[in-house]
Design a protein around this nucleic acid. Structure first.
Lengths: 198, 198, 198, 198
DNA sequence: GATGAATGAGCTTTCATTCAT
DNA sequence: AATGAATGAAAGCTCATTCAT
């Protein structure tokens, strides 16, 4: 990895942190430059605009989370266990490196205007959505998960986890995030598993 | 309702629409004034700042959604039906008056800095959270819902619905929002209901 | 004339002076604001951009010069005298209020990119060109000026005067501008008059 | 011509093209470097600044046009023919290599601040003015041109041609530039020739 | 000679808020 | 209550020039 690529990466990490903590508009270019110990002008040798940086970052974050899910997909275990692992890793990430998930919540979810041109549909979060699709369809194929519309399942899984990370960020949970892992995974499994003959 | 209260209400409705469509920072005071056919200066006779307006609006939206849930809570039916009704009304609202829900997603969720002073914890969305608490505890008391941590249940319910409204707003659902109502309600019920003796 | 119109006019006059002396790019918005004793921000209540101001100014200048030529066109005298009067007034203007003519030379002539959108063809200098057209066609109709392509005549007349004002601005003329009036008018008349039967 | 001189020449030609097309301020150092396939840093091994390049270029262009006029001056023909030849060559240049003439119009004429130090008076365009002087004084000596102030004649000749090239650049001439050659030369001759005894 | 990352001052423009009317 | 001109700080971005390599 050459020097320029390395610095590009460093800008990504630094600005991701700032954006995820303060939001897109409350993070200024001087803020980023200052934290990078570089001049504002030099920033533009690496990214052509604040917006293009934001778009790069959503891909970057999506890749990170996507890779995490893929690692679970590649394991040899049933859907119940996979759900537990995904939830657990997700919460672990939320605690240890919250910037990836917070960026989704604080920047991507809320500032459509930034992602209008260049991130239509969900192309900028494709790597993450794709892995969820693989997880879900695998489970269905193996007869472990009920065959339902993908978005019904996806919305449940990801809305739930995202919502929980938000609640945690608001400091209103009565316990640490990871302690909810089991309960949350259980609920998800109840919702997605095949119907018991009753 | 006197003239001033009426105009205050009108400002709330108008700015809610703008904020929910364009976000907090991309909506300017002149934008609001123009849509209101009033001067920027006069706006400050009704609200002391853009931020205080935003805070008023989250209470306003929370009340609206809270009232909707209360109307379900007051009905005489079991938790399964209540879930169906809440989901159905929520999706109906998302289609017919999206501003209340979009405001949560686009403004409240993303711009913590605005709600830092004055909306700590979840005091500005209390009316809505309270109703969800009532729904949940009622169901538990009646033996219809599994007794679990409130936030585990709340996060599932609200994260799921919020996430779905987001997906719908992104135009990536393969069908209209209301057609998912049954599936979504079913999933929620599966996750929250008491364990079957199996 | 209301207060706002008056101030708009004042901005036009002030910025015209600056642009004509220093050029478009070397004149900054703070320069203009400072000379106006107003804030930069307030400027944008009067003009939407620096470019739109520049476009307004070329129309403004064209009108001024056009009016001057019209005053000659309306006089009852032959083309020879009209030429003398136009040249004389043009040089008088160049000495007393050089900003109108210098703006043509320093801003309009040289910075095409500014006038690309909104001033295509010569629409922004139409009032001035039109008067020259009237002068020329009158002279031809009266049998005083040779019937030739309008642009051949226009280019001679206006290129000559413009060039002279430039030379004067460079301080290389060996006498004051107005002293050249007679010679210049004579040359123009020689070039444009009907051919003598020889 | 050694390598360095050659590259210097190449920079002159390349930047002349850019400046004449986009103007001084709208042409950036990276623009020039890119078109040259060289680095910005290296540029400064050849010219000490953007301004000094611009000054070099006006001398360069003046020499080019001056040489063209000298070639006519050296011919053995009367002033009428010389005028025709100068006009014809000037228009030919304007069509085939417009950069030399456009540079006068778009850069030299308009951006005095650039040529303030180092090009006072007309020293940077001396080679071109000198040839015009020779043309004119020759004609007077030979009794073909009326004896008048040099600038009166120079302003007519050059203002006219410059103005015409501008009109042509604006695409408002109703025919191609070269078709006006005869008319323009005729007008100039009428203005400059000795008075007929009438 | 050659590179291009880095600088830093300065550009145009925006915008919440104020205040004289 | 109402107006909208005025403010001023700060935003995103540009660019001639330098300098370590």
């Amino acid at each position: 990895m050459d020097k320029k690529t390395k610095k590009t990466e460093l800008i990504l990490e630094t600005s991701l942190l700032l954006f995820s903590q303060k939001g897109f508009y409350a993070t200024t270019m001087p803020d980023i430059a200052k934290k990078m110990n570089m001049s504002v002008g030099n920033f533009y040798n690496y990214f052509s605009s604040k917006e293009s940086l934001a778009q790069e970052l959503i891909r970057y974050s999506s890749d990170k989370v996507g890779a995490m899910i893929r690692s679970v997909n590649e394991e040899d275990c049933d859907s119940k266990e996979k759900i537990e692992k995904i939830v657990s890793l997700y919460f672990k990430l939320a605690v240890e490196k919250p910037q990836y998930l917070d960026y989704f919540l604080r920047v991507y979810l809320a500032n459509k205007e930034i992602f209008k041109d260049g991130c239509e549909g969900m192309v900028c979060v494709a790597s993450f959505v794709t892995e969820m699709m693989i997880f879900f369809e695998d489970g269905v194929r193996k007869g472990e998960l009920r065959d339902q519309n993908f978005f019904s399942a996806f919305g449940l899984f990801m809305g739930y986890l995202g919502g929980f990370v938000f609640l945690n960020g608001e400091n209103i949970l009565d316990n640490n995030l990871e302690s909810f892992s089991k309960d949350v995974a259980f609920n998800i499994y109840q919702a997605l598993k095949v119907h018991e003959a009753s």
